[in-house]
Amino acid sequence: MSKIIVMTSGKGGVGKTTSSAAFATGLALRGFKTVVIDFDVGLRNLDLVMGCERRVVFDFINVINGEAKLNQALIKDKRIENLYILPTSQTRDKDALTREGVEKVLNELSKEFDYILCDSPAGIERGALMSLYFADHAIIVTNPEVSSVRDSDRILGVLNSRSRRAEQGLEPVTQQLLLTRYDPERVERGEMLKVDDVLEILAIPLLGVIPESQAVLRASNVGMPVILDEVSNAGLAYSDAVGRFLGEDIEHRFVTPQKKGLFSRLLRRSA
């Protein structure tokens, strides 16, 4: 039985797609057969972040409309065994997502995969609703700033009222917080919300804190999930988060500023 995870946030630009790519890759690296689906119809990005944009022929919407078979649309990752990407359409819009169509595709995928990761678009409209509707688990991606926290709070409310599990009175969708773009030094200066501030408002368990890192942009631009960058803090933090998701007890790191000696201060710019 596969598990459906939605990566969602309400707000745009907080790192949903980056996190989806990293997380799916992390699960596959640990041996789970994983597929990551792009629900951002019309604003297709996941394929770029996963570095498979030149291999897209058919997409999620083609499969929903019965214009292509699922196997034709699934793209197998070249680097990692067990990892597949289901890209979306760049030419259509969110109305192309029907509940029946999405359900049909998810049902078919769940026969084959251990984890189905749905990369939600921003907002609380059709695309976001469809991506979270069938979820068993939600990872809420939030930046340490007030508007992102408020939007995450809103999406938590939507999950609790408008997901399939809520509507059918089943066990609620489990929820975890992934705090991204966290800069401990700015937090210390009072320019960013602390982890505890965010947790106080959202009141859900903390899955991980991903530090602000130049490695993220670098990885996106070359189409490599940042989790594969094993020297970057962000990559390590995602790896920890995947471990915690699978039930491992891993201490949170990168939440306090690193102590800097004179030497590293001098080298700071090249970091």
Partner: peptide
Amino acid sequence: TEPVRSGMRVYAEKTDLIVTSSVSPGA
């Protein structure tokens, strides 16, 4: 008993309302 999230609206018609959890901004 659950947190009242941003965007949620709870109306206790013709009675009292008790929330044992927190009420978020925008709720």
